[in-house]
Design a protein around this nucleic acid. Sequence first.
DNA 1: AACGTTACCGACAACGATTGCGTAAATATT
DNA 2: AATATTTACGCAATCGTTGTCGGTAACGTT
Lengths: 350, 350
Amino acid sequence: MKNCTKTRLALETATIKDIAKALNLSTSTVSRALRGSYEINPETKRIVLECAEKLNYRPNPIALSLKENRSRAIGVVVPEIDNPFFSQAINGIEAIAYNRGYHVVIFQSHESYDREVVNIQHLASRRVDGVLISLSGQTTHVEHLKELHTKGMPIVFFDRFSDEINTHKVVADNYQGAFEGTEHLINSGKKHIAHLAASPTLSITRERISGYKAALEKHGIPYNEDFVKYCNFSIEDMENVIDELLSQPILPEAIFTVSDRLAMACLKILKKRNIRIPEDMALMGFSNLKVAELLSPSFTSVIQPALEMGQRAAELLLDLVEKKSKSPAYQTVTLPTELVIRDSTKTASK
Amino acid sequence: MKNCTKTRLALETATIKDIAKALNLSTSTVSRALRGSYEINPETKRIVLECAEKLNYRPNPIALSLKENRSRAIGVVVPEIDNPFFSQAINGIEAIAYNRGYHVVIFQSHESYDREVVNIQHLASRRVDGVLISLSGQTTHVEHLKELHTKGMPIVFFDRFSDEINTHKVVADNYQGAFEGTEHLINSGKKHIAHLAASPTLSITRERISGYKAALEKHGIPYNEDFVKYCNFSIEDMENVIDELLSQPILPEAIFTVSDRLAMACLKILKKRNIRIPEDMALMGFSNLKVAELLSPSFTSVIQPALEMGQRAAELLLDLVEKKSKSPAYQTVTLPTELVIRDSTKTASK
DNA sequence: AACGTTACCGACAACGATTGCGTAAATATT
DNA sequence: AATATTTACGCAATCGTTGTCGGTAACGTT
């Protein structure tokens, strides 16, 4: 009967015990009443519900997590939040997670392998129910993930994956996107087409180069490896590589960049050098910039469905998390890209 | 001695109990050994540490959370992740949280009051240790936050705050930024300057309008309320409002937009109408777009230190979280903005 | 009247970790 | 030698919740 006024450090929330005490019931009964168990008197239920309402009772998810050995949270590891592609993907992830009752815990690898490993360790010890990850540009081996995966942690890759782990993957059709993009440049009359690639260790890089090569081959244009430049993600490195490309004996007529940041760096340097786009040099990108059409000149892009990729990946992950049956029917979802042609590749010989 | 092979649903992780069993010790001893308690035999410690290492023991943060009534996670509520300002801010938040041992749980309000309320409820029941929030454009009252706050939940506002809650706030110097921006337009020879504002309920909106008015007043330009337009955040609404502004009897010579999305929408519409920038109309924004300089024309902006705002806010929040003393010396941190002048406001009469 | 059914509810253990308290043995003190 | 102290560890409670088991009524059945 005595109302205990315990002062906790943080916010005090009513527990099932408080309700039990107030109503002179056992915690078991209260628990069952709250979950609507059939073996509780409807009248008792009513009273319990009423009291719970009055005390503003909220079940403690931490206690539940401990009991059920699940956290109802998923971890997301991306190279950089502040990158339109990833922030759009996270938007999609959050949407799905949200209405399936999960929370999203964010980690950034900053394109660093070491950070990625630490992130994974955190996620593991955090007991998230599953992991969505897009690999860092530095990542060449995935033992850290493999260990987690064999231990039973559901993992789904999106965009940047590794073949060494057999699980769901959600990717854009990088090959086709690069093929169409390159073909568009070719159809615009360009023969010397450079390809500014990201880290050579990434799956997306390889796929896009394949598409690029295939388009060249289809149109009988010889492949020139001097026209393909890789770079990691530091600003200086990007600018150096681009400078290097533009200082070659044979200047390309077109540059196909495969990331937003590369595209921006490239545009900046070209402008600085007073190279006219698209007259002197056509430019296009694998881009998720919403402002692409407002750039100067408006930017031709192969657009990836970032939001949808996030959604699909989250759905697949949560299916894995909630699936009791160990059905390893792992699939690779390939989403179509879209080529949007704008001014940066407009052919002069119109 | 018997090695129990319990098969849990998810990943099996060694617990303190497993170590105790393997070493024929009590869990208390193991626990103390792991924390390096002075009252444990150094030799015993060694053995325990060794065994923990071998079993790849990781303390269960959920169990700790339950015991200590804290989660070592902070909740972040933003209107939209996929918005450069907020993704940059989250970047800063994640950086600080990361190296202070906290995790970041993300929520989006999508500029909806209802979503924001639900988010707050989730955060509360999730038992995060603190909340960082930037209010939604629809939010006019903050009872949901006030309740949480009076219950003891540390809350720190960044960018969009409410005066009704007495706590730390981290904001950009919106007044000064708007003042300088407006003055720049005036100095460029413009007299009819429109101000495209966000939701009138937001603190940032009021502050910026104040700065705008003050600049007008300083230069003896009468305030014309037809030149100030508010809009919420739906694309249609934005375009309607802009269309409306551009269809007035007196066309402004310059538009000062106060968000990235508004600036983009505005730029788009002006281009569609073949209104030349800056000849027919100067344009500038309160922007965090990294590509602002690459837009067509390059975009004059008042830049907010988004990353730093996130960092400062996270620091203040974690200080609150970890502070034992209830010292309500709440402060409002105002970070300076920076006016970057580019082509979109270049004066023709140079 | 004796038994079996239901309906309803409580005690207890468990999830993983920490901690106050107790206590045995080993050592030190007188 | 008797006592006091230290060393090193175990027991049990705790955090909030749920599952298992069990129990007690009230009722119906023979």
